[in-house]
Design a protein around this nucleic acid. Structure first.
Lengths: 104, 104
DNA sequence: TATTTGCGCAACCAATTAGTTGCATTTATA
DNA sequence: TATAAATGCAACTAATTGGTTGCGCAAATA
């Protein structure tokens, strides 16, 4: 089973879960209240997020608080890094590239 | 059919395609030579990348050159932006947060 | 102690995905 | 002009995905 951050953030519900727990650690039940799906469906998403280490769990009695693990997000940032230059320099280099294409 | 950048970059083959054409525009046949799959499979990936505007095409006779569109990658960068502070400040703010959790 | 609550796990299901093969179309070439 | 090459499209298939329901277990509560 492939389980990497890119596959994990592909699902909009999982991105929403990340956004929620980034503000505050939450239990599966608390999270499920924010969505139209069942708690089990949310738990499945959490499982995927946990397996790729975007989320950590903290047991507290019978409740489990899920925390966001920002460190893992750096992997995405590092991948983007390779391309960042291409859009940040677009007003100098890239515009010339586009002009060249147009004039072909 | 959901077609957004996050779903597009979820597939490792598509990320590899992006990495290749970011360096140089390529035709489907040229791209397919870099992978173990058929040209049609690669074309399907290109179609998905085109639909979410990560890739632009430039017809040249019977060949089609696929170009990388870095602008669209900014959407991912903007989404990451919300969380960037969480890992960049982790040696100041976040460590305190973690200490608080431990002492609960 | 009996009951409720919070949770994970397993089985199942429909939709989607990533791949295949076969075919039609257009452009280049012999 | 006949043939080869480059590509897209359609049909089909196996695997994966996101969801459901039902269950069991441990912790909180009446």
């Amino acid at each position: 089973m492939r389980r990497d951050v890119f596959q994990a953030i592909a699902d909009p519900t999982r991105r929403a879960i990340i956004a929620l727990i980034a503000l505050q650690a939450m239990t599966p039940n608390a999270l499920a209240e924010h969505f139209d799906t069942s708690r089990q469906a949310v738990s499945k998403h959490i499982k995927i997020l946990t397996e790729c280490e975007l989320v950590r769990q903290e047991q507290s009695g019978r409740e489990i608080y899920y925390h966001f693990n920002p460190t893992k997000m750096k992997e995405i940032d590092q991948w983007l890094e390779k391309f960042r230059a291409l859009w940040e320099d677009r007003f100098s280099q890239l515009d010339n590239v586009l002009l060249n294409l147009k004039n072909k």
